[in-house]
Design a protein around this nucleic acid. Structure first.
Length: 441
DNA sequence: GTAGGGTTAG
């Protein structure tokens, strides 16, 4: 929990103590507010302990108390806890409302159990609880997040036929689903439909489509959307700025990225950790490491915490600038964090790019988990220093491991073998690749 | 009390 949140929570508790002293006793609404706040800022156990406080004070929890707890457990991806709380609520004789079911459904979708979620959805439809707009939003969102964007789209259309009027958030959910499944054209059509529906698209609708353009490397199209937002007078938030800045950095338009930052600061946007990461990334790409480290201090002073992105961005930047020791320090920070594959991939690529390819190979050997980025980096860089036989070996083990590797990297290995007089090996490698791909079909 | 967008690597 960040310092600011902790202080606010402390203040809230102090107000309650004062109120009790003055003879004003907290009621169920007060406790429910505490439960949801503790869920959000501290954790499910802390929130659950509020239940004891309520009971001690002689106040019975209600459906809202339990809904908050179920949602809190879902937030921490604890399905069993959510289910236990649901049962506990039933045992206490508190009848669940449509929100209890909504939350449970959301929970199933979140942990990747769409069938169970659909069962809850059916229960809502069959029960005498009427589904609300959020019920449909949760189902459409859940289907999208679980890889059933097509079904989500069908449900959306079906509901429209039955008189359901989608809300702005419904459109945004669908746009996001379509974008994430690579259907940029459909997403743009829905964005247009949203504009004609009587709803007004918001920054979220635009930012989602803009991001999708960038992801599919349609940078000009994405930047056009950014410009359109500007001309329509949208107030940008950190999300919009970070999306645009990230893309500008990627295509090397550093000056414009800096202009965006200026605007962002001028507009008084409070920087969160993602915004800081975006800025640090820009400074690293410019080689301004002193500025990047100044931001690290600012993060700490502001009560925020660096995350895996912060360290990964620095590892990448420092390595590429040849500062291996600096990168190693951040890699050590990452050992505490659960996922650091991207960081190691950056480290390997950076080592190669700064001329330490054997060091990179040793790091590679020591890694337990590798992905196609790990292999591609090494294979590509081995080709660059004309070590085609090692590259060929790694390329094959990558494909045999069922991972994809860039076509250009494959071509570089084959071309390298041929050009250095190993045409037969190249031919053999090609057929081995073909076989490995068939086996993984 | 609920649902939607942003940052890293080949």
């Amino acid at each position: 929990m960040c310092t600011f949140a902790a202080q606010q929570l402390e203040k809230a508790e102090a107000v309650i103590i004062d109120a009790i002293r003055l003879g004003v006793l907290p009621d169920v609404v007060t406790y429910n507010t505490l439960v949801s706040t503790y869920c959000r800022l501290v954790g499910i156990d802390a929130a659950y302990s509020i239940l004891y406080r309520m009971r001690e004070a002689g106040i019975n929890p209600d459906v809202i108390t339990y809904n908050s707890l179920i949602a809190g457990a879902a937030k921490h991806c604890s399905l069993s806890r959510s289910l236990d709380l649901f049962d506990e609520m039933l045992q206490m004789g508190i009848p669940p409302d449509v929100w209890s079911y909504n939350t449970l459904m959301h929970c199933f979708f979140k942990v990747g159990k769409p069938d169970e979620a659909n069962r809850v959805f059916r229960d809502i439809i069959l029960s005498n609880l009427s589904p609300c707009a959020a019920t449909y939003n949760i189902v459409i969102n859940g289907l999208c997040k679980n890889g059933y964007t097509g079904n989500a789209f069908m449900l959306f259309r079906n509901l429209q036929h039955h008189g359901f009027i989608p809300q702005l958030v419904t459109y945004n959910i669908l746009i996001n689903g379509l974008c994430k499944s690579g259907r940029l054209g459909a997403a743009r059509r829905i964005l247009k439909e949203l504009g004609e529906s009587g709803n007004v698209p918001n920054a979220i609708s635009y930012t989602t489509v803009m991001k999708c353009c960038f992801r599919s490397r349609k940078f000009e199209q994405g930047l056009e959307i950014f410009a359109e937002m500007k001309s329509k007078g949208y107030t940008f938030d950190a999300f919009t700025y970070c999306t645009a800045i990230g893309a500008l950095v990627k295509i090397g338009r550093i000056k414009e990225a800096n202009e965006c930052i200026e605007q962002m600061v001028k507009n008084g946007i409070e920087l969160d950790i993602v915004s800081y990461n975006t800025l640090i990334n820009l400074y690293c790409k410019e080689g301004k490491f002193e500025d990047a480290y100044m931001l690290l201090d600012e993060i700490e002073k502001g009560g925020l915490e660096c995350d895996k992105y912060t360290h990964t961005i620095l590892i990448d930047g420092l390595c590429k600038a040849g500062n291996i020791d600096g990168a190693l320090q951040h890699l050590k920070c990452m050992d505490r964090l659960d996922s650091n594959l991207v960081a190691y991939n950056c480290f390997i690529d950076g080592l190669c790019k700064s001329g330490h390819i054997d060091y990179a190979m040793r790091v590679f050997e020591s890694m337990e988990v590798k992905d196609s980025f790990t292999y591609t980096s090494l294979v590509h860089n081995l080709c660059k220093v004309r070590r085609f036989h090692s590259a060929s070996k790694l390329l094959l083990s990558c494909i045999r491991g069922g991972m994809k590797i860039l076509k250009s990297t494959q071509r570089a290995v084959l071309r390298g073998l041929r050009s250095s007089g190993f045409s037969r090996q190249a031919k053999r490698l090609k057929s081995k690749i073909r076989l490995a791909k068939i086996l993984h079909c």
